[in-house]
Each structure stands twice: as structure tokens, then as C-alpha cells.
Nucleic acid binder design. Structure first.
Lengths: 324, 324
DNA sequence: CTGAAAGCGCTAACAT
DNA sequence: ATGTTAGCGCTTTCAG
């Protein structure tokens, strides 16, 4: 294996100089640079991250914590993160909570000395017991309440959606959501819905807001079940907001299974705008989230390339065919 | 930061002994073991993978190469791989080809000294130029033609599916596939279809087998377009095999958009059995692939924990509502 | 059964 | 502008 030392010898300089030309930091004469570059090329030198990670006491891996890898929304995010991380010579690794104690996962992150952790799961964890993270200044996102954060600003999209429903004459608008403590009381989509019911002349009825076990259980499954629950409640409704597109998939399925027509009998609005929302039947009207910006923001935060302490992600309504 | 040395000092032994009890290799007296374990516990020692990676000249990261992270089938695989890898203290990192030259990605893999590469993309690459991989014995899956491999044995599932179609009286069965060179001429699903047309009394007509640009383009999009192409061809067909479930989503969408009813006018069969195939409309009849076994096999191969040189993944038909 | 010690390849002062 | 060198924390012979 060819090392930095080999390059240095071949170029007739020291390893420090080689480091300088590679990193771009520090002064190097044009002549030295040329020789080093040529040596690197001839020797096909490939730097060893393993060594630099150790020397720097920090790895180049960004950890992403997820509840469930199969969630397409997360994958959009991860996709963006991988792209952004690659630009900066970092890599992203996945850590799943499924079937593992949180402590195990945390130990795993610690032993790997990851340089940052993006927690996409619905819980905060106590990192205070992990000196490693604190000492090494590992950056955390969405792990503790004090983290810098990226928040999806659902308001514009939600307002557009409510306006659309209003324009179409809907009055009894249900909202199918997830975990009560995380996704009903704290969620910006739900809050926006709740805060603007009167403004758009929608019926206010607590029973129209349903909570379920997402994301501990699959969104589509929760959507299906909650929709059946809504159907059985006997309440009148002419439109349903779904917390996510996948939830909308389940909701629509339940509606079909019970003989309802979409959007004739009930209008559906999702949230996320997954890449295949267009191919739902009918094509889903949904609140698009700028997922690429969100993913980029995560890695920029982790890498300290973002000076803001909070970045807001844009949303907007994408009108397709699921609203009459 | 507490190091192995700290533990050794506290336990009154050498670092080598600490290593022995941690790794479980080599002889250690019960007494020494006890002391070491206690020291680890009291000091809250967390081993540093960065150091061990360097010392062993091999990292604990398994690389997964994908064309497109958003493909749900890959995510099922990655999900299984993450789970399996975690059991063995390895982590999995994602590398996307999208927008990057293959050489860049390969350099990236090399500089990170990944311990293995699972190539889920549709191309083989020339690793011969990368001494690092060869020297360090990096295990490759699906990278070169010589790799050990896991093959999905689509035959059982395909045969069941063809039998079902036959029983339902279908005769003109189309097949909507992907890249011609990879997914038409080489694909086991396609081959099985082609080889058994007569056996089930299906029409043989080359024009009924359509190729598209998947996976370079999204499956659902390719499915949609190919289905429209089929529609425009004027050929008669009463059933369609789709290479993947996501393709089926697009195909079904195209059918609806053109006024067809599923399964009344045409039956649809997918392949993969994604977790949300049940919530397609109608619920998709599809060939289930044992994705967990597939993911496990990949990491077992990478870690050398599998002595077979080829493992076969099972498939079976899951009957739902998209076949009349 | 245990310990000493020589690296692994790179980084980052510090010196020149 | 460039070189020297002392680590980074762990693994792994090799002695004892």
C-alpha cells in the first residue's frame, strides 16, 4: 500500500508538504506542489481515512438514526444527505432503532466516534452519559431539546391546502395523524389545522382529529386503521388531511374498501410529496416539503457549515386529483 | 477519554489482557477477566473503532452502492443489512451513483477502506485498478462477474403467477421490464416468462415484452410510459407482468388514466411484495421475494460468515386483488 | 496465561 | 516555505 510517506519520498519532500498540498492549507511552493501532484498521480496514492480519523480523533461518518428505514420520506432525506455529505468527503451510515435498545444504538454510535448524529426518530435521548460525544464535540440534531434544528415550516402549505378545501366547499375536514404526544400536540401541521378551522369555516370537532401509532407502526397501516375508525364513528366528513403521503395511501385504500369514491365522496390531502405521489390513484394532492433542502441542512449543521441556529424548510401545496 | 490503557491500569493488567477479554480470543484467567470487566464498567470504557480500524487496516463499514436510494426495494434490503451488520458490530454506509462519476465513488470507497461493497446498481465496474481493495481483501458482491453471489430464484414465484393467470383464462400476457441489456436478456423473471409461454398457453409475441430505462429512471415512471406504449401499440393483452411493484404502480396508473379497470379489463402482477403493496388499489398480487434473507446473505458474504459460493433467495406468489 | 513493544498512516504542533 | 516528530488508541506478534 502506498502511503503519504511514499509520495513524499518520490516527490523529494516531507510528508507535511504532501499534507499541505492535499489539504490546501498552509504555504507550498508551486514547484513542490507540482512534484507532489505528479507523485500522487504516478503512485496512484489514495489517502487513508482510517489513519486520519484516528489522528483527528473524529471519523468522517455522519450517523442517521431512524425508527424505520422503509419510510420513503426518510429516504428522500437520506438521499439528499448522502449527496451533500459526499461533496464534503463525509459518508452517511444508517442506524435503526427497530429491535434494539436505545442504549445499544448509542453505544454503537459512540464506539464508532461518529462526527454527528441526525435523529430522525421520534424521541429524544439522554446523551449526557456519553462523555465521548461531549468531549469530541459531536454535533447532534434533533437528539436533545437544545440542539440546533431544522424545522419544516408547514404553515404555507397547510394554509394553501385549507384554502383549496374551502374553495371546493368542504366543511367537515378530518385530520389523520400519528403518535399523540409527538404528532398531535406538537406537530405544526396539526396545529395549523387546529388554529385555522374557524378561519376557513370548517367544523371544529375534536373527534375529527385522530391519533395513531405512527411512526412506531407503518404509516399506511395506521392510515388504514384510523380511517376505518373514522368511518365507524359515524361522523360526517368531506375531506381528510393525512399527516404523510404514505398515510394517505392507507386512508385511500380504506375508503375504497368501504365503497367511497375519491375525490367525489371525500377529498384527500397528503403531506411530503413523495416521488411517486403522482402515481397514487387518484394522483395525490399534497403538501410538498423541500426535502433536498432539509437533507442538506442536516449535513451542513453537522459539519458546522451553517451559522444559523435554525433553518426553516419551505412547503407548498401541489394540486393533483385527490381533491374534488 | 478513557482508553484501553486506563482500563488496564485500573484492573492491574496489561492492555493485551484487556484486548483478550474484550475480543474473547486467547487465554485469560477468570480472575483477570473479572477485574477487567469491572474496570470497564466503572470507567464506562467505550472502545475506539477508529483506532482498531487503523491497527487492523480495515474499517467496519460495509458499503452499499445504489443507483437510486429512493427505490423501496433497495431500502428493504438495506434495512435487513443494517440489522444484520449491527449484530456483528459493523455499520452500513450508503453510496449513491446519481450525479457522480463511477471513478469518484470508487475512490471514495477506497479512501474509506470499506471492508466490503455490495453493489445494488446495474453495472459492473473495474476494480482491478484499485490495489487497495485487492491487497486488503475487500469483499465484493455483484461488482465483478467473479464475485460470489446471491441470486433471487424467481422461478417458483413466476410459475405460480403464470399458473394463476392461466387458471383465470388469461392468454395475452405482456411483460413490462427495464434496461434491455440487464433486465430483459439477463433477468430471471423475464427468462422464466419467455421460457414458459407455450406451457401455459400464452401468446408468444415479442412486442408484448417491453423494455425501458429502469433503473436509470424511476420504476413508476417507466411503468407508466411503457404501459402507454403498450396501449398505443394496439396489441391485445389481458394481463401484465411488471418487473417490480413500483413499476406496477405506474402501470396501473396509466391503465386508469386510459379508462381501464383492474382487474376486470386487465390483470396485474408485480414483483417484490413491498410492505405497502397491500395498499395499492387494488391490492397488488405480486411475487414476494425474501428480502430479509437477501439482505442477510449480503452481509454474511461480506463478513465471510457464509461458506456457500452462491445463495438462492426464495420467492412465492402472494395473491391479492389485482388479478381477476 | 500475561506483558512489552512495535507498528498502523496520518495530523499538527514546533522548529528551522 | 518546509521538515521533524510526537502522538492518536488499538492490535498483534513475540517473549516469558
Amino acid at each position: 500500500m502506498v502511503t503519504k510517506r511514499d509520495v513524499a519520498v518520490k516527490a523529494g519532500v516531507s510528508t507535511a508538504t504532501v499534507s499541505r498540498v492535499i489539504s490546501g492549507h498552509g504555504y507550498v511552493s508551486g514547484d513542490a506542489e507540482k512534484k507532489v501532484l505528479r507523485a500522487i498521480d504516478e503512485l496512484k496514492y489514495i489517502p487513508n481515512k482510517l489513519a486520519s480519523n484516528l489522528a483527528k480523533k473524529e471519523s468522517n461518518v455522519i450517523a442517521v438514526l431512524v425508527e424505520d428505514l422503509l419510510n420513503p420520506y426518510y429516504m428522500h432525506l437520506v438521499d439528499a444527505m448522502v449527496e451533500r455529505a459526499a461533496e464534503k468527503n463525509y459518508i452517511v451510515s444508517l442506524f435503526a432503532l427497530k429491535n434494539r435498545k436505545v442504549k445499544c444504538v448509542l453505544d454503537d454510535l459512540a464506539t464508532n466516534r461518529v462526527c454527528g448524529i441526525v435523529n430522525l426518530a421520534m424521541f429524544t435521548c439522554d446523551f449526557s452519559a456519553y462523555d465521548v460525544f461531549i468531549e469530541s464535540g459531536t454535533r447532534l440534531i434533533n437528539c436533545t431539546n437544545a440542539d440546533p434544528s431544522v424545522v419544516v415550516d408547514y404553515e404555507p402549505g397547510m394554509l394553501e391546502a385549507m384554502q383549496l378545501l374551502h374553495d371546493k366547499g368542504c366543511r367537515d375536514v378530518a385530520f389523520i395523524s400519528g403518535l399523540e404526544e409527538w404528532l398531535t400536540f406538537k406537530d405544526r401541521r396539526v396545529n395549523c389545522y387546529l388554529n385555522n378551522l374557524e378561519r376557513f369555516g370548517f367544523t371544529r370537532d375534536d373527534r375529527l382529529l385522530l391519533s395513531g401509532n405512527y411512526p412506531k407502526e407503518k404509516a399506511h397501516k395506521v392510515g388504514y386503521e384510523l380511517c376505518e375508525q373514522l368511518l365507524q364513528s359515524g361522523l360526517r366528513f368531506d375531506a381528510i388531511f393525512c399527516l404523510t403521503d404514505m398515510m394517505a395511501l392507507g386512508v385511500m385504500k380504506a375508503l375504497y374498501d368501504h365503497g367511497y369514491k375519491i375525490p367525489d365522496d371525500v377529498s384527500i390531502i397528503g403531506s411530503d410529496d413523495l416521488d411517486f405521489a403522482h402515481d397514487f390513484h387518484p394522483a395525490l394532492t399534497t403538501i410538498d416539503v423541500d426535502k433536498k433542502a432539509e437533507g442538506y441542512a442536516y449535513v451542513d449543521f453537522i459539519l458546522g457549515d451553517c451559522d444559523k441556529e435554525i433553518v426553516r424548510i419551505k412547503t407548498k401545496l401541489v394540486v393533483r386529483d385527490s381533491v374534488k
